[in-house]
Design a binder for these strands. Structure first.
Lengths: 225, 225
DNA sequence: TTAATATTCAATTAATCTATTGAATAATTG
DNA sequence: CAATTATTCAATAGATTAATTGAATATTAA
């Protein structure tokens, strides 16, 4: 017969492990990362993460069972969202731990992005000052739903898929700083490559919204339309 | 053939998932929690967490493979320790997320500790002020190796197992505040019960060293002897 | 050198997890 | 009302994980 203190500890760590199990799957982590950028339907999440609809749905059930995400029905669509901001912060702390402890993270980054970023890190504080002075253009190249959910105040929104057609909106006489979901998203890399190829002065901001928020920068939100 | 961007994302989330997998087992979480309090041998870790030596060793291999812990040989003994302070902070963020998202945590706490804490939460700021004024006695009832690894400056160390014999060291004319590993450790609860049974004025500080550190309180360390 | 102690390894078994497939359900549209 | 679309459910197969057991290894003490 188990000692009550032992039973208590076993029960408590079993609960903590619910969080660990939820985030032990690479696919669920990708879904969480996407949801950090804004609410999405199953269909959109499945496509973004290259999952079948059934598989995406199953992973989302697991995340919902551990109360990291919530869902609402909007007509035909089930819209998933993070249960609260703490989940996003937790995801970020897990990413930072992986970055600091697993050399493979940097190796993979170098192998896949080697030379592509080819761009100096942007100092965030300086960036915001330049933005306030109107000295740079900050460009958000994520899907609009993510821009609406949270963006750098004053940033322009031109999703990468629309950048080709949106070039006329961009100044040629000042630096353009493109950003997206964070260090492991290639949207801003592709945007900078395209912009440079067309003669624009473009650089990449590596940090995503969560990183900026954690550094104390204000984030603007648009009401859902 | 996989799109290189897809391959990059899969590879990156696979790395993040290494952290998630490491913390998906209740037993590994208990081991991490113990190591947050200070380095320990396999034997001690196995006993504290009710694991067989072989099983404890296997779990520690998993934690080592994900680089959350490190080990050094000291004669016969392998001493395991956290790889760095970030691991401890991550563990805490995971615990806080579980507390905020899983109602079962509070329910389990209430079921196992119901009425036992029977004690009002201690305001940490007030506590430290009273300690500086010599108005309370702060008592650390963890094993000495944990006290040595980090404790409240000025706290007395009397491990719970030695408290029976150590009562003479304690004042009867002022409050005694006992603390241990944190909200899910019962050492301080048992200590307060014993002290009150013997007429001492004792209360429990729920927070552990990590919580206090996160709140900005100084933590003292003793050199290993 | 041998015995004892601490730890890890390897193989096995049972449980859990992940992806797939086909079916079922819910909501909207024609 | 029927067809379509979005999502979830349930069963299955294969892969992975956790605990156990017995053996092997490393270090110390006698």
């Amino acid at each position: 017969m188990k000692n009550p203190n032992r039973a208590f500890k076993d029960a408590i760590y079993e609960q903590f492990a619910r969080i660990g199990k939820a985030v032990s799957s690479p696919k669920r982590l990708e879904l969480l990362d996407l949801l950090c950028q804004g609410p999405r339907s199953v269909e959109v999440l499945a496509k973004e993460s290259s999952l079948t609809f059934a598989n995406a749905s199953q992973h989302l059930q697991v995340l919902r069972a551990s109360r990291l995400v919530e869902a609402d029905k909007e007509g035909l669509y089930v819209i998933y969202r993070l249960a609260d901001q703490n989940v996003c912060e937790f995801f970020r702390s897990m990413r930072l731990l992986a970055e600091s402890r697993l050399a493979e993270v940097e190796q993979i980054k170098r192998r896949f992005l080697g030379g592509r970023e080819g761009m100096e890190p942007v100092d965030c504080k300086k960036l915001l000052r330049l933005l306030r002075e109107g000295a740079v253009t900050v460009l958000d190249v994520r899907p609009r739903v993510e821009y609406n959910a949270g963006h750098i105040p004053g940033a322009l929104s031109i999703p990468l898929k629309e950048l080709q057609l949106g070039l006329a909106d961009l100044p040629r006489d000042q630096d353009i700083v493109a950003y997206c979901r964070g260090p492991y998203c290639v949207l801003s890399i592709q945007a900078v490559e395209m912009l440079r190829a067309r003669g624009f002065k473009a650089i990449r901001l590596e940090e995503g919204i969560q990183d900026l928020q954690a550094m104390g920068f204000p984030i603007a939100v648009n009401e859902a339309s």
